[in-house]
Amino acid sequence: MAEIILPKINALQTRPAGAGPGEPLIKINDLSLFYGASKALKNVSLHLGEKVVTAFIGPSGCGKSTLLRCLNRMNDLIDNVRIEGSVSIGGHDIYGDNVDVIELRKRVGMVFQKSNPFPKSIYENVAYGLRLHGMKDKSELDGVVEQSLRGAALWDEVKDRLHSSALGLSGGQQQRLCIARAIAIRPEIVLMDEPASALDPIATTRIEELILELKKDFTIVIVTHNMQQAARISDYTAFFYIGELIEFDTTTRIFTNPAKRQTEDYVTGRFG
């Protein structure tokens, strides 16, 4: 199994590797999360760098999506969730007192597993967040909408039908629209929760290319079930198993020479 993955790893190694996370943008320290009495995340500590792609991998129910949703406090929406430990972004504890969740979510955008465009026009989907945060000027809106759609590699496909319904787009286009919508408000971090898992291989490839493009401007944290995908697009990979962070390292190391036996078993497809 390792042989199948290796050629892709070699391609990855030829990329100029980032010098490492540098000063970490996201610091997760000893984070535990409880749904009622059950502990879904167990004392996770993890530092993520700026403008790199970090992939969270692991079998279903390992807590990777839960951890992702801790980073923009989407878990707040669920009843009976309790959190211990801390998460800081850019030096600010996002679970501290006086944290404005609205401001946090402006800085930490999110793309979901199931594409969820609003039942509005393509234009209005992208403009939604902008209007929300006070942008009113028509020409300014036009400019940012175009820029965001270009950023999500969707502009050429939709520029002639900006005012028709977003629900008329294909699945892959809808997901890129959701990415455009997320990046329109210029977050620093974009969280992606299995963004390509519902898409066909061609649409998946486009999303992956887009992620590689986006990391020039954004810090990206992506949850994926697809290990080849993690290998192709991420710089760092964290492997989770039943709520625990088993191993975190450069993607190259995780996929070629993992330190832990469990990681090796998982990335070579022996379980999960």
């Binding site: 923009n72 989407m74 929406l77 609205i102 401001e103 979510r105 402006k106 955008g109 999110m110 979901f112 199931k114 969820n116 465009p117 609003f118 039942p119 939604y128 967040g129 929300l132 945060h133 959701c178 919508r181 997320a182 408000i185």
Partner: peptide
């Protein structure tokens, strides 16, 4: 769909804005 609420909230909308819009 819950996804629409989440999409709006994740963009920094308040709960009230999400409900109204």
């Amino acid at each position: 769909p819950q996804g629409l609420r989440e999409a709006s909230l994740a963009l920094g909308a308040t709960k009230l804005k999400t409900i109204i819009k």
